[in-house]
Design a protein around this nucleic acid. Sequence first.
DNA 1: TATTTTAATGTAATCGTTTTCATGTAAAGA
DNA 2: TCTTTACATGAAAACGATTACATTAAAATA
Lengths: 332, 332
Amino acid sequence: MTITIKELALKCGVSTATISRALNDDPSVTKETKEKVLAMASQLNYKPNLLARSFVTKKSNIIGLVMPDIYGEFFMEIIHGVDEVCYLNKYYTMVSSSQGKRSTAEAIIDFMSRGIVGGIILMTPAIDDEVRKILRLNHLPTVVISGKRDFDKCDSISIDNYNGAYSLTDYLINIKKIKKIAHISGPSKNNDAIQRQRGYLNALEDNGIPVNKNWIIEGDFTTLGGQSASTKLLKLKERPEVIFAANDMMAIGCYISARQLNLKIPTDFGVAGFDDIFASQFLNPRLTTLHVPIYELGKEAATILIQRMNKTAIDDFKHITVPTELIAGGSV
Amino acid sequence: MTITIKELALKCGVSTATISRALNDDPSVTKETKEKVLAMASQLNYKPNLLARSFVTKKSNIIGLVMPDIYGEFFMEIIHGVDEVCYLNKYYTMVSSSQGKRSTAEAIIDFMSRGIVGGIILMTPAIDDEVRKILRLNHLPTVVISGKRDFDKCDSISIDNYNGAYSLTDYLINIKKIKKIAHISGPSKNNDAIQRQRGYLNALEDNGIPVNKNWIIEGDFTTLGGQSASTKLLKLKERPEVIFAANDMMAIGCYISARQLNLKIPTDFGVAGFDDIFASQFLNPRLTTLHVPIYELGKEAATILIQRMNKTAIDDFKHITVPTELIAGGSV
DNA sequence: TATTTTAATGTAATCGTTTTCATGTAAAGA
DNA sequence: TCTTTACATGAAAACGATTACATTAAAATA
């Protein structure tokens, strides 16, 4: 059913080589032949078989998007951004999550060895040794989206977790005049979580506020985790005035605790989050949090990757840090 | 760097044909050769180039997921479900949205003519004539996820919008003893919206409740749309007791109106939605809505598609309707 | 033992495109 | 007018796998 280059060549009365050159805008083809070929191609609705093309050129305009799991808004927005840029550049997006069943490393290896994708966007909370090793051996252009810049051998994009958390904490202290700030952190190996906690701690220190160890609890980035952590915090003898959760999901957990303990936000205690997920704007009162431009992050990653896939020269790797934006809700 | 079948053949001292057969578990290869090849393959970390394989077999284990736009939970969950099934079956997921810049039809044509994907999952609120035409000519296995079963020439999965809306309306009438029920519908060409409205209307009729035309407003499935529609409804002289929004996003709009007009849910008026999106469970009070198993929908679609991609015999097309589940929140 | 059948493997064509190298023709220079 | 150069196009190889067909060796049959 689908027409091939041979048939098109026959119809045009030229060789397949000329067809190929015409379609790839080779300067050695005359304007007339080019026009003839293009006209016939569009008339017969000919489109080069991308499989065959990728096969012979050893290049693929498919981008592999590797993620730990496909779940929640964060990933959705990343995919959205990547897909948009891909579409505009006539690239394709292939998603691959580890589904909690294999390591990120395996997912990358699979993409690398199968010849399907021509570049990889790797989204990961932290780069472990295995992944580091693979990325070093890697011959495919790769962009890492991570919580922290911690790999130099490829392009990377990170959220400015540290400054985000710092500025929010600083805002609580200096604008809201709050000194008793608790923190529910994320998983201890997650770079986003680590940087956010660092920002929180340094802001306290810089403002001369001593750290109360009881007010720092490790969470797991889930609503349930936030709920149990905040319940603990709220039952302490010396209760904090504000709970700064390392992400919005856990902040939502704080709202649930509040309801259960019959406490009012922000009068009995305040809540702040990080991420500005969709649900946050509908919490009552609206959550004070840090907006992370995830969609733009995905777009940026895809843009950089496509640039690199298109050029042979290896210039310096880019390392971009994307700032967050403070959203002052009514929760503090 | 990556090793090819030729090199592996050389190492094993057999022909490429034997390698190919061994790896594809052809019964004509002896156990010993098979073992030898497999051992050497794993030792040298050989993986068949999928591009070359797909190219020669004219089959691809890549599934193309075509959506109008990649946005919001609905799509996220679909992708999640599809990806999971793909991963388990060693298939790959390629996403493609129209990005509001091209028709769904064009996206399908692109996939079909490029030889990249071996099957398509098409998610669309309604099948227009153009798409219908293409699907008829289509030679690629396709599964349609739609708001209504309205195309017979391929497998399809639909949410049971009608019965969901009917049961919710019936619940409001008979359990909650409410007679004044308004409806904010979805876009008039959206099949999900149409079926939901039908369910609402028929439930009213079956319960002998006359329809009040002023209480039915067309919305657009967005929060803002829900907000403006509900504001209109709440300012009517004869105000409805409950507003049944055709999706949760618009139901959230009703909550915003309530706050603005200083009305309390559910005492001043009630709200019900459809979809049970993530944010709904955190609304205060929790939204009464219909849970749609979107993730399962995606899994099911991928499962059916892979089955069809694996067999040559064309048996009857499956048409599956997935039921919804009533979630009784405190919003009514 | 001679012949046929069967089983295991090899040879070579094939897929649709790109690309190197060869070829022919027209324009430019002598 | 003859040679050189530049340009446009064609012929054919190449990419890495699969597979129809050919071949060989071993087993089964007469």
